[in-house]
Structures are given as structure tokens and as C-alpha cells.
Amino acid sequence: MNEESKNAASGSGYHVPVLFFECLNALNIRPDGVYVDCTFGGGGHSRGILEQLNERGTLIAFDQDADAQQNLPADKRVVFVAQNFRHLQRFLRLHKFPKVDGVLADLGVSSHQFDEGERGFSTRFDGPLDMRMDRRTQLTAAHILLTYPEAQLHKLFEQYGEVTNSKTLAKHVVQHRKQASLKTISDFRALLQPVVKGNPNKYLAQVFQALRIEVNDEMGALKEMLEQIPQVLNKGGRAAIITFHSIEDRIVKNFFKQGSFEEAPDNPFVQTEKEVLLKVITKKPVTASDEELKRNPRARSAKLRIAEKT
């Protein structure tokens, strides 16, 4: 491992890339190929890709968070797209790269987003109830809590946060939101206090996860991006996706396996013929080594799945 690889793998103060070497191996990088990093963030994975490209290779980096642009290297092989990866195909065509050799997406929230209190992602700091990854959009966590009807909040906490008492929580929020101030994280924590179940830190993390997913339409964006992968990959090109919770992982697993997001019916009498456009490379997801977990505990829930265009 050379010094550049070590530096890229350890990341910057902005973000430590997870499953760094596993991702680079997954992509089967050709030195003159075209590769997409859908979640540029701190640029760790991107720097690893660039190191393996020659002067004819190209890296296209997407990130909807304006803060990520501060990490861009001065490298003429990099094309930066300040957009959500749900617009993958449109911006690849716009930049005259209709086909690429590999697509990487690390779906985790960057360490920077968690560590900047004013972004509202973390329960550790006080700050506005924001949670927008793209601050050009309008919907915030505060707006959801103040305006969503009880049934919608219940569904949101149950599906995206797997909160044990999601129905009670939704009812409690609706009953008390008119009297409570819900501008800041500390306001919200005070409102939640009477209904917290089990470990308070875990409970809050689940509630915050649910809100963050809704604010950023993370599941919608992921599905749109995945549907475009078979169209944008060259034959033999690879897609490598890192997920951080079971909802994302199930979506990626099902799409790679059968080209749809639903579980295939386990019925021998029902034959559904569907053209398979991707070959699954990882029967089981790749997870972080013990060595990586010591360095970066945030990698604990990371799962890498890989597929190849047939």
C-alpha cells in the first residue's frame, strides 16, 4: 500500500471512507476508464479511484451538499456535478459520458454532516431541526414534525426508523406540537422525553434517521439511481453500493438480484420472466474488517454489494 492510498483510506477530518480497498477492488478499475462516485463527500473513495486512473481516465463526482466542493482535488480528470445522484443519467449525458465503466455510491451520512451541529443531523449537538443534505431544497425536519398528519408520522417512524412505539410517538408529537417550540434539536428532545423507550441514545438515533430519510427522500433517490445503472454501465462495468441500514440494503439486494424492489414471490407455480441486466458478484454483502472497525466504528453497519452489467 503506497502513501497516497493510506491517506485516502484514512480520509480527511471531513469524512473517513468506509470499505475503501474493498470498493476499489469491487470496481475492477481500468486505467483509462470512466468512473462515477455518486457520493463524493470528503473525496476519499474518489482519490483512491484517481490513483488507479491514467491521464486518459475520468472520474465524475456527484454531491448535492455544497460543503463537499471544498474537498475537490485540482485534477483535470475530475468532473464535479453538484446534484443528487438521482439525476445520474441526465448529467452523464450532459457531460458527454453516456456510458461509464463503474458506479460507486456510499449511502452513509458523511462524518462532516454529523459533526456540524448547525446541520441538525446529530443528537449530540444543539442546532436547528434541519437535516437537509441539499440546502437548496425546502423541506426540513421541523416542517415535517409541525405539519405531517399523525398517520403519516406513524408510517415514517415505523418504516424508516423502526421505532418500537412509532404509533405512540406520532400521537404524542401531534398532541403537543402546537404548544412546544420545535425550532431546535433540544426542543425536540424535550418533547420526546415522555415517550422514549429503551436506550435513549438508540431511540433518538432511530427517530433522527427516520426524519433524515424523509427530508432527503433517500429511498426515492436510491431507487431512481439504481434503475439508471443498467443503462449507464458499459458491458462488464461494475456497480458498488454501500448501505448502512436494512431498508437500503434490501432495496439494493432486490434490485441487483431481480431488477425490481419487491421480494420475488417464492412460488414454484408462478413464473415471472424478467430480463436480468446485472449479475450479482456478492452473494453476501462485504462488511468491515476488525482492523477497520477499530479505526472507524462508524463502519460497523456498512454493507457493500456489487453487481456487474451483463
Rank of each mutant, 00 (worst) to 15 (best):
G43T: 12
D290I: 06
D130G: 09
Q179F: 00
F121L: 08
G198K: 09
Q193S: 14
I281V: 15
L192G: 06
T287M: 14
R238D: 02
N296C: 11
I306W: 02
V280C: 12
L92F: 01
P31A: 08
Q231K: 13
Q175T: 08
G198D: 08
L72Q: 04
A307V: 10
H143C: 04
E248S: 06
S111R: 02
P73R: 08
H176W: 07
P230Y: 12
F125N: 05
C38A: 15
I247C: 03
L104E: 05
G259Y: 06
D32P: 00
V173S: 10
F269D: 05
A61P: 07
G48V: 02
D65P: 01
P17T: 09
V163T: 08
E248Q: 13
D290W: 00
K274N: 07
P194N: 09
Q52C: 10
K202P: 00
Y203W: 11
N234Y: 09
E273N: 01
T287D: 03
Q175R: 13
T184R: 15
N71F: 00
T310I: 13
P285M: 02
A264M: 06
Y14L: 05
R250H: 14
K309Q: 11
F256P: 09
D101H: 15
V103G: 09
A239W: 02
I144Y: 09
A9L: 03
Q175I: 05
A26C: 04
V196H: 07
L182N: 13
L139V: 15
